[in-house]
Write a protein that binds this DNA or RNA. Sequence first.
DNA 1: GTTGCGATTGGCT
DNA 2: GCCAATCGCAACC
Length: 219
Amino acid sequence: MRRGDPPVAEPPRAWFARPTEEVARDLVGCSLVVDGGTASAVVARIVETEAYLGTSDPASHAYRGPTPRSRVMFGPAAHLYVYFTYGVHHCANVVTETDGVAGAVLLRAASVEEGLQTVTTRRGDTVTQPALLRGPGNLCRGLGITRADDGIDLLDPHSRVHIDRRAGSPPIVVGKRVGLRHAADRPLRFSWLGDPAVSRPVPREPVETLTSGQRKGPD
DNA sequence: GTTGCGATTGGCT
DNA sequence: GCCAATCGCAACC
């Protein structure tokens, strides 16, 4: 494990049901556990997220109200919202806010801690380790996340994807979201300062730095 | 029914 | 920095 931080228990649903920006910030440093307990288990440390606020956010899929694709964003927190884009890539989000209020956190990058062989097989053996889960499309490919995982409950013991909090307080850089036409200037991208797995463009420090030890809300 | 385009990526100029 | 790839979704007729 990196930096000696021990794993902590899976957070309760109330932790995910907080304001989307807070969850996005606090997810940096958490562990993604995929197919835990199997031969192809993968554990990866989240190093970058983006907040998508819902009906008030022109960049959010929820902006125009619920559709067949975005309906999961309007449901209870701690579910996975997975969409397919550019005819090529999947992107994975963690649903936030209370039931009936849309909000989600895009998982943009992570660092592999366990299951390196599994991830390398999915991504190809020419990809360097820090790049294996760099970028939202690459993250889904490396973790084997597809539309089949859309709507799964992260807190259901039978789900193949879980999130664990970790002790420790990663230094975080706040910057603008990536690749947007609308609302591109809002500072809703949260990156682990200096981590080699953070996606491009690497945020210029210091836009604004903070530590997730400054958390508000339920722990 | 038709159409324009995207919360991306990798390769090339 | 520019651009093609590739297709599901949502807007519009």
